[in-house]
Write a protein that binds this DNA or RNA. Sequence first.
DNA 1: AAACCATTCAACCGCCGAACG
DNA 2: ACGTTCGGCGGTTGAATGGTT
Length: 239
Amino acid sequence: MEGDIVPLSVRKGAWTAEEDTLLSSYILKNGEGNWNLIPKKAGLNRCRKSCRLRWLNYLSPHIKRGVFEYDEIDLIVRLHNLLGNRWSLIAGRIPRRTANDVKNFWNSHLKKVIKTNSTVERANINSDTPNKVEAIRPRTHTFTKRLIFVKDKYVTLRTHDNMECNQGNVPIQEPVYKEMENNIPIQNDISNEGVDHMWKQYPCLVAEKEQEDVTLFDPNIDWGDISVENINIWSLLED
DNA sequence: AAACCATTCAACCGCCGAACG
DNA sequence: ACGTTCGGCGGTTGAATGGTT
C-alpha cells in the first residue's frame, strides 16, 4: 500500500526523550489531527504510524501505565473469553488501558496460565497449553419479552452522552452482568476517572408473566453498549 | 564474573476497511 | 467503479532486563 511506504531516511527504533517532548508538546498544543502531517509539523523524522503509536501507547496523558490490578485482570480474562484476541475492543472496556498493553499483558502473563475459561482464580492453574478461544462477534439484537431470564439481575450500561436512544434495537458490543446480592447490586468496580463515558447500573424490569410485553430497560436513557459478564447473552438471545 | 536463558514490552510490519476524489 | 490515502488493528520482533547456572 502506497500510504505505508516511508522514506528510507525515517528514523526507527526506540524514541528519545527529545522526540517525546517534540511530539507531546505539538499534540497537546494542536490536537491529534492528521497523523500524516504531525511528524513534519512537530519536527520529527518519524513516520505517521510511529508517531501515532508512540502517542497512543505511551505519551498520551489519558493512559494508565503500570501494574494491572485484580479488577482489570478479571475483566481482561472475561472479555477475552468472550471476544478472543480483539484487543482494541477489550481495551476499550478497561478505562485508560491501551490495546497494546492489554495484548502484551495477555501474551506475557495470562496466555500460558489460562486454561479453559474466564475467571482469574483459574488463571492460577499452571499449564503450557494455550487457551483456545472462539470469538463471539457482536451483533445487533432486538430486545423482547424473552429476556425474562434476567430477573433479579442488574445490567451495567456504558452510556455516551452523544449516543441516541435506539429503542427496541439495541446494539450490543459487550456484555456485562451483575448478580444481585440481598437485593443489592454488586458494585461495579470500573472507574469513571478520565474517561468519556459513564458506567451506570440499571435494574432489569421483568414482567409478571412471560406473555406480557415488557420494557426491560429505561427507555429514557441513551443506549451505548450493554455488557454482561458470566453469560453469553448473544447465544442466549439466539433462541 | 561470565555465559546463558527467559521474560517483558515498546515498536514495527502488513493488512484491512472507510472515506474521498 | 476504481485507485489512493489514512486511521486502525492484530501479529510479531528484538532490545533490554532479570534470573539462573
